[in-house]
Amino acid sequence: MIITELSILYVLLLFIITFLSILLVYLLIRKARENSVRKRINMHKDKYRVPIFEYLSSGETTRLIQPIGKERKVAIEELLKEYVSVLDSLETRLNLSRYAETHLMDLYLNNLKSIYWGKRMNTLFNIENFHMTSLEEEVIEHILNKQSAQKEEKIQGLCILAHFQSNSFESFLEQNYKDLSEFDLRNILRRLNDIQLEDLIVDFDNYEQHLQCAILDRISLLAQVEFVPFLESVFFNKEDEIRIRALKALSNIGHVQDIRQYFSLCQSTIWQERMLLAKLLKIIQDEQAIPCLKKLLHDQSWWVRSQAGQTIASYPSGNVILNDILIESNDNFAKDMARECLDKGVLI
């Protein structure tokens, strides 16, 4: 009886081993071929490196850098990627975009339709890197308007529109943002400039909370005083997380219209608010806030104590206050913090 089982197993093993061997041969051939292709691409890269650089800085084309065939195009693509991260004058960037649009356009049009997700993603990254604005319509057509496109592709598509300051950005964002996380949104929005942000602020109240948070974080990073009135209106009118984010942005910008309106936060039940108040008071120094800061140095949250300590230390009378606390206070946590802040001497 066991003979049957054995023969089944023999056949199965034989089959698997044959299959694996064929796969091995295929993979080995593929590797050998790709290794030699890689060698040729590297040769092309060496050949093109200097002419491309000259073109990028002068804008004059020579016949040498007209890439024909896929390997040369890949070589060019890799070189451009190396340069794009080091060049920052506007003119060279324009030259680079123009060059990429002339020579890589066909390749990228095909890649956007590729069945490989990895290939489509790489192409999207490069469209943004090389600032190939003439592909905007194709990105919309093949990625953003496509049902089957995956989340990562949509995110990258939105990044491209944001980066290109496209007029269609806002509508595509509104279509897609509900499926995206706050981090994704922050990542997309960090490409926006202040004018594009103004457009989003108009519809601020209609968005869901995670997009609102992302917008506030973008403002916080931009750190432009023009946004202070908007942030203050959010802070005084909204609740919870949104309110904290607005306060965080304000403390980052380091400007408010009247600091005394914020003093009541000293009694806030939310530790983040107390900490952010201490942070604001470091930039907008106000002697009247010192009793409040002393109280915050005795706070139950380590973060609040730490920020209050740093703030006090930055005041002209800071060292005196901290020394007093070190002597007078009964609270060991506050004393520890005061000691650490006084000790900052050599190190940052």
Binding site: G118, M121, N122, R186, L221
Partner: peptide, 20 residues
């Protein structure tokens, strides 16, 4: 297999920003 041929560096570039 999903990540086949995906660039090894590009997807991580945005993560180099310490604010994120």
């Amino acid at each position: 297999r999903k990540e086949y041929r995906l660039s090894k560096t590009e997807p991580f570039k945005d993560y180099m920003d310490e604010n994120f």
